[in-house]
Design a protein around this nucleic acid. Structure first.
Length: 798
DNA sequence: GGCCTGGTCTTTTTT
DNA sequence: AGACCAGGCC
């Protein structure tokens, strides 16, 4: 087996409590990083041997514990920096972790190559053992965009109608399988045949074969191939077992099955694995995270110690009380009770607005008031459920001249112009990067159309060579029109020239030359559209962002995993972002607009995941509330425009789950609340046992509106009525949602009791018979309505 | 190869 | 309503 490069010598493990250890600690019996830890935190830091699960509630000092633990391991001489594995989910989290460890232990952190995201560590491992998993040196990492283009080709080759079976859907299906650690041969038969009339599994296998041929992996493979590597090569695994004396995992509640398997393989060595997480903040179930991983930690690692961090240092009492009461509505929690010794502070306010416009105005007014009282704007956040909500706030802030910043949104490296530029660089870096070549062979337009590309493809397949090589062969033959041949020849020659220059020039200069000589910059300069200027600006920014890297290869390697770019933080502006991207952040004042049924909890979460979906939405609400240090302000609107149509909306059930004692119902801003009806405002609050957000009374007039009826029809049923158990999933016998061509590789969907050929009745579509069963989703050929996909709970046996 | 049109979709996001 | 994409037409 290959010996690990850069192998550090075995450290002489200090005998616990021995002279050396005591001497090391001697000068300062309580090193700075241990000071100020509460007893539970301290225990979590000092429990070094054996498996440890730290259940850290929101704002309980989770990151502090992780970083102090690393510092502790190092200062105790338990391991060298290179022998500690620290995994996070995002690059941002990894960066922060690194900075904070640096603050504690100084430059020792530079010797920690194994601090990073699951994926970056996955690549690091694969780069060392590529030959054992059938890859070649310098394999490329495909991102989602490449992945989809590749799948499109596969679908076309199989003559599968992309209208009915979009590549995007196949991509997410395959992703889902990979998240669950399934390689093509392990995909459950039923699921594998769900896509494209039974060809899903075959397409997955074909896709994997194409990846291997391209010497490429996708994100999922970074873990999946790692798992395979460890399983098939016990000696390699044993080597890592010896290496990793301590393993630390951040945000453990977000791990998916593949990550979990990967981790478990590695942790079997030292067994000194410490996972930190909060089951109440698991909000990524929809992309494969398995809360179960946290729930079964103790059984997977027998003898595991569990430490709960429940002392909250972030929020004032009312906020914490409201959040705790809300989340208590979830079942299947490990259960933590957060407490704070802070003052009660401000109650959580709930404000109703007539519509989304009024909601934005009210929030704007409140922020202006905060601004007048010198509240820093950077400490104010608006956390929305869905990004379309942002626009109204942005518009309002533009009118008010209020500085704001939208966090998230389309990311720098995903912009088309950046991806094009990168494709040029990839072609230069590797003449066998077919996907990159295809992307830019005709960008800017140079007369190499589909026909020519197909011709190149055919030659490439026939001769089993990369596209660039095939193109060269073609230009040397007589098979092309002279004009096309000349153009293609010119492009290939340019690649050669740039490759030569790459050896002599700094990579930033090379990038400028390439963008210039390829005509790419010119293409945008000539473009008259509004965004052209911005794109040119982005290209300049791209070149600037290459500067810190040693060479082209280093840069390309970096951006394949780090798709984000440091954005200029620090300015005094209101932050607008989704609840999801707010996880891990905190602000003095948090606005939570849009608490309405259908939006929050989101209809789709309810439709597709039922009770599990509802609970995840509730965790999202919990995450939102607990972002606030001093003030949390919840809003809902009675009318909201969705897909261009006005709908009356119903206040979110989560509002009723907030405890009276910690909530203040604010006066409705600017207007009558519900037109003419009993004013919503403070009046109803606490009165007569009715819900504070009574839906029947003030709404009576709106029930008859077309909007309301549309909303009713569109809804999954069962959730909109007030009162009752909040956890009801879709119930049978009503007009249910249609899932047009939507297939989710769902681990939660129960298998339907219906079988193919069975005759069924649907409230909306009438009679029909089942033609396909996928979990709880049925394809039904209706006698009148044609073929539809429906949830099984919405049909009954006829 | 470029432009127009019509059809479809519209939660959350990382790597 | 608005964005995006595919396909048809010039």
């Amino acid at each position: 087996m290959p010996s690990l490069p850069h192998e550090a010598p075995e450290p002489p493990a200090l005998r616990p409590g021995g002279i050396a250890e005591r001497a090391r600690a001697g000068g300062r019996p309580n090193p700075a990083f241990l000071n100020g830890l509460n007893p539970e935190q301290r225990e979590a830091v000092e429990t070094l041997d054996g498996p440890l699960l730290v259940l850290a509630g929101a704002g309980t000092g989770k990151t502090r514990v992780l970083t102090a633990r690393v510092a502790h391991i190092l200062s105790q001489g338990r391991a060298f920096p290179s022998q500690i594995l620290v995994v996070t989910f995002t690059n941002k989290a990894a960066r922060e972790m690194k900075e904070r460890i640096h603050a504690m232990v100084g430059d020792a952190v530079e010797g920690m190559p194994w601090l990073g995201t699951f994926h970056s560590i996955g690549v690091r491992i694969l780069r060392r053992h590529y030959e054992l998993v059938g890859l070649k040196s310098g394999f490329t990492i495909l991102d989602t965009d490449d992945q989809i283009r590749l799948l499109k080709q596969l679908l076309a080759a199989e003559t599968i109608d992309e209208k009915r079976w979009p590549a995007r859907l196949l991509a997410s299906t395959i992703d889902g399988w990979k998240n669950r650690g399934l390689s093509p041969e392990n995909v459950p038969a039923g699921e594998g045949s769900a896509f494209a009339n039974g060809r899903g599994q075959m397409l997955y296998a074909a896709y994997q074969a194409r990846l291997k041929a391209l010497n490429a992996v996708d994100f999922g493979d970074l873990l999946l191939e790692g798992i395979r590597l460890f399983r098939e090569n016990p000696d390699v695994l044993a080597d890592y077992h010896r290496r990793f004396k301590y393993l630390l995992v951040d945000e453990y509640q977000d791990t998916n099955v593949a990550q979990y398997l990967w981790l478990r393989l590695l942790a079997q060595g030292s067994r000194n694995v410490c996972c930190v997480g909060d089951d109440d903040q698991s909000i990524y179930g929809w992309r494969g995270a398995e809360v179960d991983n946290i729930l079964r930690f103790e059984s997977d690692f027998p003898g595991a110690k569990v430490i709960r961090l429940e002392r909250n240092y972030r929020s004032t009492g009312h906020i914490l009380g409201a959040a705790a009461h809300l989340i208590a509505n979830n079942q299947g929690r490990l259960g933590k009770t957060l407490f704070s010794e802070d003052e009660l502070g401000e109650r959580v306010t709930v404000t109703g607005a007539w519509d989304s416009g009024e909601e934005a105005r009210a929030v704007g007014d409140e922020i202006e008031a905060l601004q007048r009282s010198d509240h820093p704007l950077s400490q104010v956040a608006i956390l929305v459920r869905a990004s379309f909500q942002m626009r109204e706030f942005e518009e309002r802030f533009v009118t008010l001249g209020m500085p704001y910043r939208v966090i998230g949104g389309p990311r720098f490296y995903e912009r088309a112009e950046i991806r094009d530029a990168l494709a040029y660089l990839r072609c230069i870096q590797s003449s066998s990067d077919d996907l990159a070549f295809e992307r830019i062979v005709n960008v800017p337009k140079r007369g190499i159309g589909d026909a020519t590309v197909k011709q190149i493809h055919d030659v490439a397949r026939g001769a089993a060579v990369p596209l660039q090589e095939a193109a060269r062969l073609l230009t040397e033959s007589e098979e092309m029109k002279p004009k096309v041949r000349g153009t293609l020849r010119g492009l290939l020659d340019s690649f050669e020239r740039w490759r030569d220059q790459a050896r002599q020039l700094p990579h930033t200069e090379l990038a400028e030359i390439v963008l210039d000589e390829s005509g790419y910059t010119e293409m945008w300069q000539k473009d008259r559209s509004a965004e052209a200027a911005g794109r040119l600006e982005n290209l300049k920014e791209l070149v600037r962002s290459m500067e810190p890297f040693e060479n082209l290869q280093g840069f390309l390697e970096h951006i394949s995993l780090v798709m984000d770019v440091e954005n200029g933080a620090g300015e005094d502006a209101v932050q607008i972002m989704t609840l999801h991207s707010a996880k891990g952040l905190e602000f003095d004042t948090v606005f939570l607009p849009g608490w309405e049924e259908g939006l929050f909890p989101h209809q789709r979460a309810l439709d597709e995941q039922g009770k599990a979906g509802l609970e995840e939405e509730r965790r999202l609400a919990y995450v939102g509330l607990t972002r606030a240090r001093r003030s949390a302000r919840v809003y809902f609107a009675s009318n909201r425009r969705i897909h261009g149509m006005w709908n009356s909306t119903v206040p979110s059930r989560f509002l009723d789950e907030l405890p009276d004692a910690h909530v203040r119902v604010a006066e409705s801003k600017g207007g009558l609340g519900w037109g003419g009806g009993s004013s919503y405002g403070g009046g109803n609050y606490g009165g007569g046992g009715a819900s504070r957000f009574d839906r029947a009374e003030p709404f009576s007039s709106t029930y008859a509106t077309p909007g309301w009826q549309r909303a009713q029809t569109a809804r999954a049923s069962g959730f909109a009525e007030r009162g009752g158990a909040p956890n009801r999933g879709p119930s049978p016998g009503r007009g249910g949602p249609v899932i047009e061509g939507t297939l989710i590789a769902s681990s939660t969907g129960n298998t339907s009791t219906y079988g193919c050929g069975e005759r069924v009745f649907h409230q909306k579509f009438g009679y029909g018979h089942v033609t396909e069963v996928d979990g709880n989703k049925l394809t039904v050929q209706f006698e009148k309505a044609g073929e539809k996909r429906v949830l099984d709970s919405f049909v009954e046996r006829a």
